Computed example of a mutant assay.
Amino acid sequence: MHILWDFDGTLFNTYPAFTETMYKLLKPEIRKEHIFEQLKVSFSHAARTFELTEEDIAVFKKQEKALSPVLKPPFPYAEEVLRYASKNVIMTHKPRNEVEAILKHYRWEHYFDEIVAGDDGFPRKPHPAAYEYLHRVHRIDLAIGDRELDILPARELGIKTCLFQNDAAGADFYLNDYRLFIDKIAASF
Rank of each mutant, 00 (worst) to 15 (best):
P95L: 07
A85V: 00
W108K: 09
T53H: 08
H45L: 11
L157F: 02
A85F: 02
D6T: 12
H45V: 08
R48H: 15
Y178F: 08
I35Q: 07
L163W: 02
S42N: 00
P153T: 04
E98S: 04
P123V: 01
V116P: 04
A58E: 15
P28A: 12
R147Q: 14
F112C: 00
R83W: 10
K104N: 04
R136T: 13
T53S: 15
D167C: 04
Y84M: 10
I57C: 05
I182E: 15
I182S: 14
V116F: 02
K160A: 11
T92W: 01
R139Q: 15
R31G: 13
E98P: 03
Y106Q: 02
R83D: 06
K72H: 03
R83E: 12
Y15R: 04
F60T: 00
L163A: 00
P153Q: 11
E80V: 03
H34Q: 14
D183E: 14
A46V: 00
E51C: 14
R136G: 08
G145S: 07
F164K: 04
L25R: 05
L52R: 03
D6R: 08
F189H: 11
I102F: 07
A130Y: 04
N13K: 12
Y84A: 05
F173C: 08
R31N: 15
A143T: 12
H2P: 10
Q63G: 09
P73V: 00
A169Q: 07
E114H: 10
I182L: 13
L134Y: 10
K61G: 04
G121N: 09
K184P: 12
D150A: 06
I182K: 15
I185S: 07
P28T: 10
A85Y: 01
P74H: 00
A66Q: 13
E79N: 00
L11G: 11
L157H: 06
R107L: 05
L142Q: 13
K27G: 02
I102M: 04
P73S: 01
L67S: 14
V59R: 13
L103Y: 01
L4G: 05
L149F: 11
E156T: 15
K72D: 05
E114L: 02
A187S: 14
H34V: 13
F181W: 02
L152Q: 11
H34K: 13
M22N: 03
I144T: 06
M91A: 07
V137E: 15
R136W: 08
E109H: 09
Y174C: 08
R147T: 15
G121W: 10
N13F: 01
D183K: 12
P153S: 07
G145A: 03
W108Q: 07
H34Y: 07
I30A: 13
R124Y: 05
T49Q: 15
D172G: 10
M91H: 10
